[in-house]
Amino acid sequence: MKKVQIIILAAIAISVAVLISWMGNLSTYETIASAKQKPGKTVTIIAHMDKQQPMEYDPVKNPNYFSFYIKDTLGATAKVVYHFEKPYDLEKAEKITLKGKMNGDVLEISQKTGIQLKCPSKYKDDPNMAKKELSQN
């Protein structure tokens, strides 16, 4: 066998090993109910903000503590604690992707990128707003 072929095979073997170890570190998409079954494991939940329940952010007291409630499509709710500032347009997001660990009934998020907002677009303002504007009068 040629050297190059040996190296390619070795490289592929290493890549597969890397890929498998990387797969092990992936988090799974969960509903709020199923996430509660997996305390301490990093889970990803897609939900929207539950505006019926209070949101807490008082930067004068603590700029690194933000809590709010989420509700998923199955109707389950959970409290979220995010140890960073409140994302600017959280209320406008139609969907929120959250990555964190369940601690009892609370989803603890300790990475900045643990909250990702699905806005109509980061750079575009709400197209529904445009519609609204046109519907006046």
């Binding site: 004068v60 603590n62 700029p63 690194n64 140890h83 960073f84 603890e108 300790s110 900045k112």
Partner: peptide, 25 residues
């Protein structure tokens, strides 16, 4: 790092968590 922020102990887990924001009055 919010080492001297107001009411640091408000967040019980403050020690383990990143505290990248600081509040200036």
């Amino acid at each position: 790092y919010n080492t001297t922020g107001i009411l640091l102990n408000f967040d019980p887990e403050a020690k383990q968590n990143p505290m990248e924001n600081i509040t200036l009055l």
